[in-house]
Every structure is written in structure tokens, then in C-alpha cells.
Simulated scan of single mutants.
Amino acid sequence: MHEKRVARAYFAELMLALAVYTILLLAAIRYGRAMPDGWLRTLVLVTPMIGFGMMIRTVARHIARVDEYQRIRLLENVAVAAAITLAATFTYGFLETAGFPKVSMFWVWMGMGASTAAVTLVRKVAER
């Protein structure tokens, strides 16, 4: 029962944070890009980070709510995923010096998410 309540709370908080992020992102793209350079434009373009901060808070609250076993598993998965992401970004840094095209830092976040999902899936399959 506790796990279901924790999962529901996490999902609700995460969806709210994602909604805030998405709304602010769309507004920043729509209005910020058209603004003249300056501090106000910069401020508008980074406003989606409010939603991102909410996501960080949601994840931290979720980690605090789950039991020790789930917390350890989650943190292990994220640690391995971070190492995979680090290796991939570091490798691509060398490839950029060899002439490969520059890649936006936005890809690092997607790589971290994909790595976390892959590590979690592989560990679940290996446990069976």
C-alpha cells in the first residue's frame, strides 16, 4: 500500500513539474527568441528551469519517501547511468576534435534518461 501511495504522489508531482516546464519552455521559445539581446531576454529564455527545478525537487522527495532497498537500487541505477553518460559525452568530445559536428548539450540530458532506463531494464531482466 505504501509503495502505491508513494508512486502516485511521485507521478502527480512529476506530471505537474513537467507541465510547468513545458508551458514555460513553449513561452520562452515563442517570446524569448524574438526579444532583443539583453538581460530580460536571457531571463525569459531560462524560465523553463523553474519547471526543471521542480522536477529535481520531485525526484529528491521520491528518493526520501521510498524504502532503503528501493533507494539503493535507484541510486545505483542512476550512478551507473551517469557513468555511461559521462563516457559517451567524453568520447564524443574527442570525436568533435576529429571533425565530428558539435552537438548541443541538450543531448546529454536525453542520454542520461536513456541510460537510466536501459540500466534499470537490464537489471530487472537480470534479476529474473
Rank of each mutant, 00 (worst) to 15 (best):
Trp109Gly: 13
Phe106Asp: 07
Ser115Pro: 05
Ile84Gln: 06
Gln70Asp: 06
Tyr21Val: 04
Gly32Glu: 04
Tyr31Trp: 11
Gly51Ser: 04
Ala34Lys: 10
Glu96Trp: 02
Thr58Asn: 02
Ser115Tyr: 00
Phe90Asn: 09
Thr58Phe: 03
Leu25Met: 14
Thr91Ala: 10
Ser115Trp: 02
Ala64Leu: 01
Ile29Asn: 12
Tyr69Leu: 14
Ile50Trp: 07
Arg33Asn: 10
Ala79His: 10
Leu25Glu: 05
Tyr10Gly: 04
Gly38Cys: 15
Val108Tyr: 02
Pro101Asn: 08
Leu16Phe: 03
Ile29Val: 11
Ala118Asp: 12
Val122Lys: 04
Ala98Phe: 05
Ala27Ile: 11
Val80Tyr: 08
Leu43Arg: 15
Ser104Val: 04
Val66Ala: 06
Ser115Leu: 00
Ile84Leu: 08
Trp39Cys: 07
Tyr10Phe: 15
Ser115Arg: 03
Arg5His: 09
Met112Lys: 00
Tyr92Met: 09
Gly111Trp: 00
Ala60Phe: 00
Ala17His: 06
Val6Asn: 06
Gly99Phe: 05
Asn77Tyr: 14
Tyr21His: 10
Ala17Phe: 02
Pro36Gln: 14
Asp37Leu: 13
Asp37Met: 14
Arg71Phe: 01
Val125Thr: 08
Arg5Glu: 12
Tyr21Phe: 13
Ala83Asp: 10
Arg73Met: 01
Arg30Tyr: 10
Thr85Trp: 00
Leu25Tyr: 12
Arg33Glu: 09
Gly111Asp: 04
Tyr92Gln: 07
Lys102Ser: 14
Ala34Leu: 11
Arg123Ser: 13
Tyr31Ile: 08
Asn77Ala: 10
Thr22Leu: 15
Leu75Asp: 12
Val125Phe: 11
Thr91Tyr: 07
Phe100Asn: 08
Ala88Gly: 13
Gly51Asn: 03
Met112Pro: 03
Tyr21Gly: 04
Phe106Ala: 00
Val59Leu: 01
Gly32Met: 14
Glu13Phe: 01
Val20Trp: 13
Val78His: 11
Met35Val: 09
Val44Gly: 14
Met15Cys: 02
Ala60Val: 02
Ala17Val: 01
Glu96Arg: 02
Met1Val: 05
Val103Asn: 07
Arg73Phe: 01
Ala79Asp: 08
Ala27Arg: 09
Thr85Lys: 00
Leu25Ser: 09
Tyr69Phe: 14
Val108His: 02
Tyr69Ser: 13
Ala118Gly: 12
Ala82Ser: 06
Leu121Tyr: 15
Met112Asn: 06
Gly113Met: 02
Thr89Ile: 13
Ser104Asn: 12
Ile29Arg: 12
Val108Pro: 00
Leu26Cys: 07
Pro101Ser: 08
Ser104Ala: 08
Val103Phe: 12
Thr22Glu: 10
Val122Cys: 10
Leu43Met: 15
Leu18Gln: 13
Thr91Asn: 05
His2Ser: 03
Ala12Asp: 11
Ala27Met: 10
Pro101Asp: 06
Val122Leu: 12
Phe100Ile: 08
Leu95Phe: 05
Lys4Asp: 15
Val108Phe: 05
Arg61Glu: 03
Ile72Lys: 01
Lys124Met: 11
Ala82Glu: 04
Arg41Lys: 15
Arg57Ile: 11
Leu74Gly: 10
Ala81Met: 12
Pro48His: 06
Val80Phe: 09
Ala83Thr: 10
Leu18Cys: 15
Arg71Glu: 00
Leu121Pro: 15
Ala87Met: 11
